[in-house]
Nucleic acid binder design. Structure first.
Lengths: 332, 332
DNA sequence: ACGCGGGAGGTAAGCGTTTCCTGACGCCGG
DNA sequence: CCGGCGTCAGGAAACGCTTACCTCCCGCGT
């Protein structure tokens, strides 16, 4: 009994069709210089043998892998998941594969992963990298083609949400509602959005000296938000602005457990508008970061880069306010 | 000015160290037959040139890519995200990369993605595939090494949660609480868990003929849960068992908006214990599927397979009941 | 002093493609 | 009728690496 070869190569197809390797390659790649009848014969042979070109060998010679790498700080973060989903689907539509790595919020891992995954892919998308700007600038030089999400570096194409503008809008809304003591729960110091937010806070504080705007260091997840509950309540603030929805949700739950009524005693606003923000009680007021769009747009830029075209200009989306039920006037 | 070669190859290192290609390869791969002093010289040359072996070329000859493929039905589903995270981190710890694809709940995409990604990786992990059993069996034969999550096929190593057992426990709990009219919101017909759940429902119905157990077709997300609210209320059931937490959350929110008190008027139990289940109001009673463990264990099996060892036996984890506040006795 | 064994490093053969270059053939024009 | 040119297919190099195999040299034993 004829043992089926473990793997069928282009040579098998060539033998079957009675032509040379190069002809098979040309025929299967649609090279027009091959006689149509011959091409058909080759295709038939390939089909009978169930042949598909080995992508590795192909990549080695062509220098292209049809794969891009994405590095995110934490796969458990709903925002990154959504970005990844938009990105992944857009890339898949263009027949590209996605290699994801989770840097576990570690700057070292970020650098290492970016470098090693870059070597086996055609480009890298760094999603909200936490590393300091100089490090990012240095690294960026070695990574091209590179697209950044929520960070910028030189003229690297990027897409990002304007955290500063959205935070400013939130602060203004709360001020208009009458709040005069507010607290901001800041997270992930490395993230670019932190800088934007800090600037927005500074500007607001300067513009409204009558308002007591306190800043409370905090983590980036629900536990961190819960842990900050006592400090928030002790601060006497009538409104809390959380780094993200996770923090807001943790805080919301924790203060309610302590008997604090939201929004009557304390207004809470989140950031990101994760899918669950609608389902908290009360429904969370937040700023809707269009994460899926960010992912899609990031791919659009990478795709242009890979095609050697000029990428679309860097994009800054302003998150839209999603005013729901955790914000309201301060207690009288 | 000496132009730096775009890419430094093993030949450059060999020239720099004044040795042959093979010696460089051996030295860098820690082959003990190379003289320690020479090895050191090679390593030094490699370091000066900032050389790293081209993974593609290496893969082509070695036949190993240090990469595995994972196919999930929907990246937006928190359970798959968690599985992916456990899997990704475990694989990363073993210096493996992960190529993820989102099949968008499409059976066709599932098959195609599995096949094409398999070719550029060392193995595939199919996460909760939706395709019918015969298709899965056929496909499985061409995919080895393969690991299945939440499905089985022949003697393919697998890890899964025992949805049937957990659902049985939920049903028993509700019965003990006194519920006599219950409704089950079933989702994703293709999924293996649906079969297990159907069997559990059948068995329960047979064992407790006095209980009215109704089944309501439903989708798999929060919107589907919300859409089912009227039907659930109209059914007169005092307890609703949702296909997953997303459905439960949508339902919970929708019935509360209609003035229904949970759990006083209606008990609701979810499934999966997604991170947000703790934060609904009231906190959602659910069954805790250890998704991160599933991911980690899936990798353990793949890892063994790749090492040519016998994989650990297929694993079935029984989700633990997470009794919180959406379940209670039926109204009197 | 010579042969032989063993160890270290070099040579070259792949891995499976793509692609450049060459050669054969046929056709057309001179 | 012959030369030249265009077309199409084959040969072979190249992509960057690993590894089997072979050579060379050294040291030992007789």
């Amino acid at each position: 009994m004829a043992r089926r070869p473990a793997v069928v190569t282009i040579a098998d197809v060539a033998a079957r069709a009675g032509v040379s390797l190069s002809t098979v390659s040309r025929a299967l790649n649609g090279n027009p210089t091959v006689d149509p009848a011959l091409a058909e014969r080759v295709r038939a042979a390939a089909a009978e043998l169930d042949y598909t070109a080995n992508p590795l060998a192909r990549s080695l010679v062509s220098g292209r892998t049809q794969t891009i790498a994405v590095v995110v700080p934490d796969l458990a973060n709903p925002t990154f998941q959504t970005i990844l989903r938009g990105l992944g689907r857009a890339a898949a539509a263009d027949d590209f594969h996605v290699l994801v790595s989770d840097s576990a919020e570690s700057v070292d891992a970020e650098r290492t992963l970016a470098t090693t995954t870059r070597r086996r892919t055609d480009g890298v998308i760094l999603c909200a990298p936490r590393m300091p700007q100089p490090d990012l600038d240095t690294l960026a030089a070695t990574l091209a083609p590179l697209v950044l999400v929520n960070r910028t570096s030189g003229d690297v194409p990027s897409v990002r949400a304007d955290y500063g503008a959205a935070l400013r809008a939130q602060l203004d809304d709360l001020r208009r509602l009458g709040h005069r003591r507010m607290v901001h729960l800041s997270g992930a110091p490395g993230s670019a959005s932190s800088a934007q937010r800090a600037a927005a806070l500074d500007a607001f504080a300067a513009a409204h000296p009558d308002i007591d705007l306190h800043r409370l260091p905090c983590g980036v997840d629900a536990d961190a938000g819960a842990a900050a509950a006592d400090a928030v309540l002790a601060s006497g603030a009538t409104a809390a602005l959380a780094f993200n929805d996770l923090v807001a949700i943790g805080l919301l739950d924790a203060v309610r457990r302590r008997g604090c009524r939201v929004p009557d005693d304390l207004s809470i606003v989140g950031f990101d508008d994760i899918p669950f923000a609608r389902f908290t009680t009360p429904a969370l007021t937040t700023a809707a970061v269009p994460a899926e769009d960010l992912g899609r747009e990031a791919w659009a830029r990478m795709s242009a880069l890979l095609a050697g075209e000029a990428p679309p200009p860097s994009l800054t989306l302003v998150p839209e306010a999603a005013v729901r039920a955790t914000s309201g006037p301060p207690p009288a």
